Amino acid sequence: MAVPGRLEPLLEQYDFACLRLVQRLGGPFVDSGNGLEIPVPPLTDAEFLWEPVPGAWSVRPRAAAALGTAALGTGATVLVGAGEWGRETAPVHPVPPPFTTLAWRLGHLAEMLALRAEYTVGGHRLTRDDHVNPGDAVGAVAAFEAGARAWREALLAVADDATLDKVGHSTYPNGSDAEERFLDVVWWVNQEVLHHGAEIALLRDLYREWAGRPDVPS
Rank of each mutant, 00 (worst) to 15 (best):
D31E: 15
E37P: 13
A82W: 10
A66N: 10
D45W: 04
D129E: 13
P96V: 02
G122P: 09
H131E: 12
P52T: 06
L49K: 02
E47A: 02
T89C: 12
L126I: 03
A82C: 10
L36K: 13
V95P: 00
D129N: 08
P94L: 05
R105L: 13
E88P: 01
A66P: 05
T44A: 09
T44H: 10
L109V: 05
A114L: 04
V40L: 00
A76F: 02
A117K: 09
H124M: 03
T100K: 15
P98F: 05
A65Y: 06
P42T: 15
G122H: 04
H124G: 13
F99C: 11
A64C: 14
P98Y: 06
A103K: 02
W85T: 03
A71Q: 02
D31W: 01
W104M: 08
P54W: 01
P39F: 09
F99L: 10
P42F: 13
G83E: 12
A90C: 03
D129H: 08
T100W: 06
R105A: 15
E47R: 03
E118A: 10
V53M: 04
P91S: 11
A103C: 03
R128T: 14
L126D: 14
E51Q: 15
P39W: 09
P134G: 08
G35W: 10
R116K: 11
W50M: 02
A63H: 02
V132N: 08
F29V: 14
S32F: 04
P54N: 07
D136N: 13
A56T: 05
G55V: 11
E47G: 03
P61V: 01
A103P: 03
T69C: 02
H93Q: 14
N34A: 14
A46L: 12
P98C: 10
V121W: 01
A82I: 08
H108W: 06
F29I: 09
A114V: 08
L67A: 15
P134V: 05
D129I: 00
W104Q: 11
G81A: 13
G135Y: 01
R125W: 00
E118G: 13
T77E: 14
L72V: 00
F48C: 06
L109I: 10
L115V: 00
E118D: 13
H108G: 07
V30E: 14
H93E: 14
A110Q: 02
N133F: 15
T101C: 03
P42M: 12
E84H: 11
A63M: 00
P91H: 09
V59A: 02
V121D: 02
H124S: 12
H124L: 04
G75C: 10
P52N: 09
P134Y: 07
T101F: 00
P94S: 04
G75I: 07
P39E: 11
L106W: 04
A64S: 15
R128I: 10
W104G: 07
P41M: 11
L49A: 07
R87H: 04
A103T: 04
Y119R: 12
L106V: 08
V95K: 12
A70N: 14
L43H: 07
R128L: 13
G55P: 07
E118Y: 08
V92M: 09
V30M: 10
G55F: 04
F99A: 15
H131Q: 14
L49R: 10
D136C: 08
D31A: 14
P96N: 03
V80P: 01
V30S: 14
P61N: 00
A64V: 08
V53W: 06
T120M: 01
P98N: 09
P94T: 05
G107Y: 06
R105T: 14
A90P: 05
L72C: 00
